[in-house]
């Protein structure tokens, strides 16, 4: 299912690459197996792309897309798919991932990972789009479980079953974000352990770890997946449970807001590695 099993075995623990850390990463080469970047940040093929190709000499790379909009009823943006393909051809990432969500309608890009109702209609649309994306990109995709803040009344298919069926229909893999499982348990009552048991273990190609924020509304709290804090104990526990079920798949620390010193992220990566080796 994956393009390069040998390289996958080498890539165990990584962090998201963010611009303020680029120079320090190149200079200090900390103990990380891979770096992940948001694909859309490099599609100008300008100076940021040049720096990425430089850093690629020291670290394996994975590309994480945020704009393919795999859940759009209107289908995929062919121009964007072409840019993504160009980037993949030049970067040669060991993993490429996207989200079980949508962001484009009537050509407008809404810049958030918006939720889908889990219906037969949505499944048919996402299946068609994932198949078209894999054809257009010339490789398999990992599809990530999204963070959720609402449930649609017509959602009849549990999300983990939806993903499992998507794997059966398209041959895609899954990126399991354990922080999203924790956030969703709180926000929409998803059972994270049942979720992990429902996902097809041999389709999991990567795990994401991140922190979140709390937002108080009407004396209730929603957890916001803002990648803006350290990883909490409960998410580390879920990470262990996920590794027990899926094996030692590549695992990534994501951080976007309140970006700490690189050393802090490397320290979190070390914690991840210590849990990871137990599952290897």
């Amino acid at each position: 299912m994956f393009d390069d099993r040998t390289r996958r075995a080498e890539a165990q623990i990584g962090i998201g690459l963010r611009a303020p850390h680029v120079d320090e990463l190149s200079a200090t080469r900390p103990a990380l197996d891979f770096l992940e970047v948001h694909a859309e940040n490099y599609m100008d093929f300008g100076p940021a792309f040049t720096r990425l190709m430089y850093i690629r000499r020291d670290f394996m790379l994975s590309l994480h897309g945020v704009g393919l909009s795999l859940g759009s009823a209107e289908g995929l943006d062919r121009d964007h798919l072409g840019r993504f393909r160009d980037l993949i051809d030049r970067v040669q990432p060991f993993l490429v991932s996207e989200h079980l969500s949508w962001s484009v309608v009537d050509g407008a890009y809404l810049n958030d990972l918006l939720p889908l109702p889990y219906t037969e209609e949505s499944l048919a649309i996402v299946t068609r789009n994932v198949a078209a994306a894999q054809d257009g990109l010339g490789r398999s995709l990992l599809v990530e479980n999204p963070s959720r803040y609402l449930r649609f009344r017509d959602s009849r298919i549990p999300e983990a079953e939806f993903l499992a069926e998507l794997v059966r229909r398209t041959g895609c893999g899954i990126l399991c974000d354990v922080n999203n499982l924790y956030v969703n348990a709180h926000n929409v009552g998803e059972d994270p352990i049942l979720y992990l048991e429902t996902l097809p273990a041999d389709a999991i190609g990567e795990i994401h770890l991140a922190g979140h924020a709390r937002c108080d509304i009407d004396e209730r709290t929603l957890l916001i997946d803002d990648h803006g804090a350290a990883i909490c104990d409960e998410v580390w526990t879920l990470f262990g449970a996920a590794l027990n079920r899926f094996g030692a798949v590549p695992s990534l620390i994501e951080r976007d807001k309140n970006l700490p010193a690189l050393a802090d992220l490397v320290a979190e990566a070390s914690i991840a590695r210590s849990i990871h080796v137990l599952a290897a």
Partner: peptide, 8 residues
């Protein structure tokens, strides 16, 4: 609104 996901 943007018509592409490359929001930079």
């Amino acid at each position: 609104p943007p018509d592409t996901p490359c929001v930079a």
